[in-house]
Design a protein around this nucleic acid. Structure first.
Lengths: 235, 235
DNA sequence: CGTAAATTTGAAGTAATTCAAAATGCGTGG
DNA sequence: CCACGCATTTTGAATTACTTCAAATTTACG
């Protein structure tokens, strides 16, 4: 039906400026849209991707949020990334065709799915898509490497500040309030992401609160002085 | 001259099983080789890539070794990776067309260079090359994410053990002695790579020596009990 | 409204850092 | 070849940021 197909098309999606089609021509976007499958709504805790599974598609968060996570051999969980709407997950599967971490919904989640076979065939003919996939991979790589040096060189407060400022920026890009938001992830998830314990995350947040930089009520965060947080990053 | 062109061709390069052509057909390798430029020998300390520079090519170490590094805003150096022969550097530039870290020779270094324009044109027609570049990016991403969780979850000795075991594996793949090698990087470089201080690296190596797991004489390392080191990783 | 989960707060312990000095290795020129 | 001097590495002692363990408090949800 006309309406449904309009809803499905990337061209009319609110995320198109952020998502994979961001830098594609209208024509390329239309063709890509033909390969995109829309997933049904998943509930919090649902697993979109499982570590070890064959990589059969790219997944894009459409609404809600997710974490890319796994467990170390000692059973400890780690969190590689949090995924907001428009962000592509599962790219690490390009390494050997298998995923190495789970993708877990943090709240009710809708997503799009681009089967790998169709993506590869489209990349053959669409140079823009080719460039975009490379850009996406490069961006994820850059981000992972930046996070790596951050975890090893910056102290707990610096890392938490960086996390909050980065999240704020990403929300802003999505036209969501950048200074007044709800964390969809637990303190434990944040800690596992930043290489800290949940107690240290809580204490650092407490320090920001005491300094008057943020307002914290459970998972609701208000950034009162984002610049003070950003200043922590400059060291 | 015939000889020179033979030397230049990827097909006859000793690294072809490890390098970019690893999974390419003979035909694709031949075509790719036509786009590869051979750099002159650089001396230790020379900078192949500069952070901030426009990404104009992919660089591959042909002999010697290099580090991918940069400086934090507080002036501290960090080391994202060490690059051995056959390893491609500068992939993070795909993010926005600019490099974000330097590539510095750790010893006399020879390299190959694949201009980006030619690479992109070749990817248009060579599906194998396309897949290989994606694989390479995926692998770098996976590696960066793995390192990130390692830095945040594993203690100093575990990280150093992981570094030595990984290096050993990479040397082995290159038909170099995996248990008896010379480190081309300083303790400081290793520390900056693992998110430690050089003193901690030295002390951890000392602990391995005391345990009879390694023999250390300056930069010469002999792995006496690689399995003991590998066991540290399993936690 | 009540119970389990999540978060905060507290106190003690520890691995790694920092600062400092000694020892070793390495290249250079006598 | 050996001696010199500088850079790297090792070793030592004190400090500290973060963790760990434990308990109180708040929040979420049936």
């Amino acid at each position: 039906m006309e309406l449904t197909s309009t809803e499905l098309s990337c061209g009319s999606c609110a995320l198109s400026r952020i998502c994979l089609p961001a830098n594609l021509s209208a024509r390329e976007t239309r063709i890509l849209a033909g390969a995109v499958e829309r997933g049904r709504e998943l509930q919090s805790g649902a697993r979109l991707i499982r570590a070890g599974a064959r990589m059969d598609a790219l997944y894009v968060v459409r609404s809600g949020s997710a974490k890319s996570c796994g467990v170390m051999n000692d059973g400890e969980e780690y969190v590689r990334a949090f995924n907001l709407p428009g962000e592509v997950a599962g790219l690490e599967g390009f390494a050997d065709g298998h995923h190495t971490c789970d993708l877990v919904a943090l709240e009710p989640l809708r997503y799009c799915r681009i089967p790998l076979g169709r993506l590869e065939r489209l990349m053959e003919t669409l140079p823009g898509l080719r460039r975009e996939v490379l850009r996406l991979l490069g961006q994820s790589l850059e981000e992972a490497q930046r996070m790596r040096t951050e975890v090893s060189m910056v102290d707990a407060r610096g890392r938490l500040a960086s996390f909050l400022v980065d999240l704020s920026r990403r929300l802003e890009r999505r036209n969501l309030p950048p200074t007044h938001f709800r964390l969809s992830m637990s303190r434990r998830d944040i800690a596992r992401h930043l290489g800290l314990t949940l107690e240290t995350v809580s204490r650092s947040l407490g320090a920001f609160r005491s300094a008057g930089w943020v307002e914290v009520r459970a998972r609701y965060i208000k950034l009162l002085q984002p610049k003070a947080l950003a200043a922590l990053l400059a060291h």
